[in-house]
C-alpha cells in the first residue's frame, strides 16, 4: 500500500500527538480515503497494521462515521443538505434537481464515474442556505440554475 508523501508526512507528524496510537485513526482514515477514493480492504489492512489494531476494530469505526465509505464513489461527491434551514429555503428542490440532472438517486454514482449524489445532514451553512458541498468545497445560496453551473464546471474540470 503506497500513500503520497504528504500523507506519510502528516501521519508521521500526527501519531506522536497522542498517548495512544489509535487516537490518530479517524483523521487518518479520512485522509487515506481522500487519496484512494474509498476505504478498500488494502487501506483498512494497512491502517490497522500501522495503528496496532485489528481490521475489525477499524471497520467498526468506519461504519460509525458518515463521511467514511468502503464503497467507491464518483470523482465528485455532491452532498446536498436538506436539513431544516436548507429545507425551508428550497434544499429539497436542489436535491431533486441534481437527481434529475444526473439521473441518479441518493448515494448512487453516474455511469461515467464522475458524480455521486448524497442527501446529507447539516453541513454548517445554515445562514447561507440552501447549500451543498462537492467533495470539500462549499456552494451556498443555491438555486437550481446556480447548481447547473456548478455541476457543469466540475464536469469541465474532469475533462481537462
Amino acid at each position: 500500500m503506497k500513500f503520497s508523501d504528504e500523507f506519510e508526512q502528516r501521519f508521521a507528524e500526527m501519531v506522536p500527538h497522542y498517548p495512544t496510537k489509535r487516537s490518530a485513526l479517524v483523521p487518518t482514515l479520512l485522509y487515506a480515503q481522500d487519496e484512494v477514493g474509498f476505504l478498500s480492504d488494502d487501506v483498512i489492512a494497512e491502517i490497522a497494521a500501522r495503528l496496532d489494531l485489528t481490521e475489525l476494530e477499524v471497520r467498526n469505526v468506519i461504519s460509525y462515521y458518515s463521511m467514511l465509505t468502503t464503497k467507491p464513489r464518483g470523482k465528485f461527491n455532491v452532498q446536498v443538505c436538506t436539513n431544516i434551514s436548507c429545507m425551508v429555503r428550497g434544499g429539497e428542490e436542489i436535491l431533486h434537481h441534481c437527481a434529475t440532472k444526473l439521473g441518479i438517486g441518493h448515494k448512487h454514482t453516474t455511469a461515467d464515474g464522475l458524480f455521486t449524489l448524497e442527501e446529507v445532514e447539516c453541513i454548517g451553512a445554515c445562514s447561507w442556505a440552501p447549500a451543498a458541498q462537492v467533495n470539500y468545497d462549499f456552494h451556498e445560496n443555491l438555486t437550481p440554475e446556480k447548481m447547473d453551473g456548478i455541476l457543469d464546471n466540475y464536469k469541465k474540470k474532469a475533462m481537462q
Partner: peptide, 26 residues
C-alpha cells in the same frame, strides 16, 4: 494539536467527543 472528525453529530456531545478523539466510535 489539531484533530479532525469524519461526520457525526453525536460526537459534538462531550463524552462521545472524547471517544472519537481516542479513535473509537462516538
Amino acid at each position: 494539536y489539531w484533530h479532525g472528525g469524519a461526520g457525526a453529530y453525536e460526537v459534538g456531545e462531550e463524552s462521545a467527543l472524547m471517544e472519537s478523539l481516542e479513535g473509537k466510535r462516538g
